[in-house]
Write a protein that binds this DNA or RNA. Structure first.
Lengths: 246, 246
DNA sequence: CCGCGCGTTTGATCCAGGTCAAGGAGGAAT
DNA sequence: ATTCCTCCTTGACCTGGATCAAACGCGCGG
């Protein structure tokens, strides 16, 4: 809810310093990034770019959560990515973006203009290698997502999404989610349905079912508590012992 | 069907020389790759690695097509990637593979042992940057695939798969598929169903329907001819003018 | 305090695609 | 040729999730 305060002049105090594209940078390399960075903030629900638009910068998400969406001609929408703090936005070597990017909550981006960033990518190998690593991680989670979309039931999809959110939020606190884990859903039922390839009615029904059965406890309709995390994991249909993160 | 013959001593004669991870290499860099490469061949249907196994090398697909699959405990399977000639297999910086890799047709790999390759990745920036570019492309197609899995009807899924195959096969011949395009399906109905999140019966029925309506012509059940490519494109549900490749 | 709007829940019905169950059809071995 | 296979097609039926249609509830402005 409340913004994390940090000194925008000093990357050392940045909350994502050690997980973002700059994670492997030495002090001097960091200084080069610092020289070309600037911040932007978007309100919840606000579009960041539309598919087909030019994107003049690349960026790291500092706070908040953004989504990548594809839309078909007839209006069917599918979310194809979810950007948490430290995730990278934009594609070096391409000016045009392929999908709509939307702020799901208030989002702060640490932006780098394209040309200087690409230049730096050529000169500073630690940035390129970190970016490769992050892109490979994203590819892995895209593939996990493909399994969710292609083969899981509605109930398994909801459970999987809750686990993904719990893990990413816990990641920010540097702990693993356990029993009694509590977190906020960063999105509406409709966005959840766009993520999971369902309708919002089905999302609502499945959440109600999980609630009725005590797998989750809701307060309001955004705040979730998980009394027994293993129970939730079982509902995902995945191999319970770590197969998912492998 | 018949193997492409090439001189395995000379990367210059390699059929994927200008599209694989080595695409941007200068002669001297190529020589370094050449020094650590070796070839492996797998028969159609043969496993290349299983999820969880150590993979001692990374590789480029030279000929043939391989699939990446995820399997759930109860046997549900989802294909999460399709590797065509020039595509890259394996993940630098990780020893264990996340999914089953299977040869769909006879596959020849140009392999590099992990350690020397990673070493080279550090020394030769053109390899790293090419790998980043290829990984970003794969991420884009994974996201296109997510739209297919999450939002398309069975008929649209089949049409989309046919278009993807036609494009990739045409890519090998350096032409774009047009009317009268002819290609072979590199996989069984069952594999198609694993790709598309359908059952094999639904795949079969939809192919029969497209055939009955004249959108495609089959000879045998692997060879496809597309009399009117735009007609097929319409069936994918995508924006017809290039939205798909953006 | 009331009413309006938006996000959500819940109910009733429908249908695309899954499931179960028989047949083809081609290819290799006998 | 005949018999297996293996892969594919087709048919009949069923069901999970979509669709259509009300309510509900909570925050906000008047």
């Amino acid at each position: 809810m409340d913004k994390i305060a940090f000194d925008t002049k000093d990357c050392g105090s940045c909350p994502i310093r050690h997980r973002a594209v700059c994670a492997n940078c030495q002090a001097d390399e960091l200084a080069q990034l610092e020289a070309i960075k600037f911040y932007r903030t978007y309100q919840a629900g606000q579009p960041i770019v539309w598919a087909g638009d030019r994107l003049e910068f690349v960026a790291s998400v500092v706070t908040g959560i953004a989504s990548l969406n594809q839309t078909m001609e007839d209006g069917r929408r599918q979310m194809v990515g979810l950007l948490f703090p430290s995730d990278f936005l934009g594609r070096p070597g391409r000016n045009v973006v392929n999908y709509d990017v939307t702020a799901m909550s208030e989002v702060t981006l640490c932006c780098f203009r394209k040309a200087p960033f690409e230049d730096l990518l050529r000169r500073v190998p630690s940035v390129g290698s970190r970016l490769l690593e992050m892109t490979l991680d994203e590819l892995d989670s895209a593939r996990e997502w493909m399994l969710i979309l292609g083969r899981k039931t509605a109930r398994e999809k909801i459970a999987s999404l809750l686990v993904i959110i719990a893990r990413r939020q816990a990641g920010l606190l540097l702990t693993k989610p356990g029993d009694g884990a509590q977190f906020d859903l960063p999105m509406s039922r409709e966005s959840m349905s766009e993520y999971l390839g369902l309708t919002l009615e089905t999302v609502s029904r499945q959440i109600s079912a999980l609630k009725k059965e005590g797998v989750i406890v809701l307060s309001g309709n955004r705040s979730v508590t998980v009394p027994d995390f293993d129970r939730l994991l079982e509902e995902t249909g995945d191999d319970v012992d770590g197969g998912m993160l492998a």
